[in-house]
Design a protein around this nucleic acid. Structure first.
Lengths: 243, 243
DNA sequence: TACACTTTTTGTCCATTTTACAATTTCTTT
DNA sequence: AAAGAAATTGTAAAATGGACAAAAAGTGTA
């Protein structure tokens, strides 16, 4: 069995024996949102272990003492769902004293937006099953995961406006209508088609390609590609969508 | 000596003995920014205890196992600097494995913006001294606090545009010039005076009072007050400054 | 081949907002 | 009474935004 060596602890550095502090744990929980074709879903696992056995939950687990937080989130996601190469980022940390029945566990929530048709999540380790849930069909979740999910959804909306969290869910070549649909779905708003595309074109981070759609029974749309570098420079300088 | 009872832990829930996970600690660190008269400072303490004894650092300490995170941040700030009633909010959590020399300690960073002339921070507990440092004169800090400070400053700028983090540092009655100076200083940008005030007036969360400045050797400015409720409603609905 | 149908794409008009300034006002100080 | 200083108001050109209409470019069908 693997063991996790800890550094020696010096006592009496604080007036309370420092050992008393080193009896907590922390976990990571991943809110993986899947966007495809005007549909936003959340990836949940069904827990196969106590506590909250059989409950649906965000993929998450305790962090090893010798593991960075970001690395832990990546590993845990892979352990439970077999997903790799998902770019995740923190939402915030949830630390209510009684949020975990087995002891003091604070949890760092992580967020990603992915294209589910690229992926095939498969339950492993103690996860019984995995499932993409529509956001209006989410059951009551384990721990404080319902709260974490709600806040993560809010953070997703914010980040969509201020950073490139969306390029993963677009194909290499996409239409402006697809781009618009993505923003309309996640922000739960509709936009005038003509005005939306005019604005997008002004921003100049979309490159119009020579190709266009094939085999559609209407005027084919021309395809665009996303200039990630240009967009990132813009957001670093304070650009944000004002949709 | 105070002791901190922990709940009993069940073993064998996970394939690794769960005790192995419950040997970590977490801390909170507070980035308290002080704004006064076109000047932005950061409150630091000089550490009077190992590790990093004598180093300057953000006020921060370990969290008790029976303490919520937000409450811990409030308490720690009071313990070290005697400051109370400071409205703090999370920035993010820093969790590099080796960031703390005594063991695995992740830290949750908190942020506030205050008016330093209202306050008299006084070092207590293991803090040797406290000092407001200008942001361009910050020494090398303990732990990873330099990184935390930098990121907190970025978060401060963001929050200034999207929520009411500034009303604490304005007097009850203030001039539009004072309001503008606050934004110019923190965002490190300058604005056209006439246009800035026109925009502000349109927003309607400032109430023009009948009073005006006294004893200034130029045309006195009329005073305004801030309608916090109105502003909060607006930001909840998505309003943000686009300065 | 012509026409219906669908969605993309472009264009237009008008109201509103932004921007860069200039001019005016209202105090104190000299 | 005039000068100085900053607040306040005004203005004109440019840019933007929103509602909406028209044209374009494909497929499917008679």
């Amino acid at each position: 069995m693997k063991s996790y060596p800890l550094r020696l602890l010096e006592d009496d550095v604080y007036s309370i024996p420092i050992d008393a502090f080193f009896k907590s744990a922390f976990s990571v929980d991943c809110a993986i949102f899947g966007y495809h074709d005007r549909d936003l879903k959340i990836l949940l696992i069904q827990r196969g272990a106590a506590p909250y056995e059989n409950f649906w939950a965000l993929p998450g687990d305790l962090v090893y003492p010798d593991e960075d937080l970001d690395g832990a989130a990546t590993r845990v996601l892979k352990d439970l769902t077999s997903l790799t190469d998902i770019p995740i980022r923190q939402v915030r940390t949830f630390g209510q004293v009684n949020r975990h029945p087995l002891g003091r566990v604070i949890t760092v929530a992580y967020l990603a937006l992915v294209e589910p048709t690229d992926l095939a999540p498969q339950a492993s380790s103690w996860a019984k099953s995995t499932k993409w849930h529509s956001l209006n069909e989410v059951p009551s979740l384990a721990f404080d995961h319902s709260e974490i999910l709600q806040e993560s959804l809010g953070t997703l909306k914010n980040r969509l406006l201020t950073e490139d969290i969306f390029s993963n869910v677009l194909p290499q070549k996409f239409t402006l209508t697809e781009f618009q649909a993505l923003f309309e779905t996640i922000l739960e708003k509709e936009f005038d088609k003509g005005n939306f595309r005019k604005k997008l074109v002004q921003f100049k981070f979309l490159k119009k390609l020579t190709e266009s759609q094939k085999n559609v029974s209407h005027r084919p749309s021309s395809l665009y590609s996303f200039d990630e570098k240009k967009f990132n420079k813009m957001t670093e300088k304070g650009f944000a969508f004002d949709f």
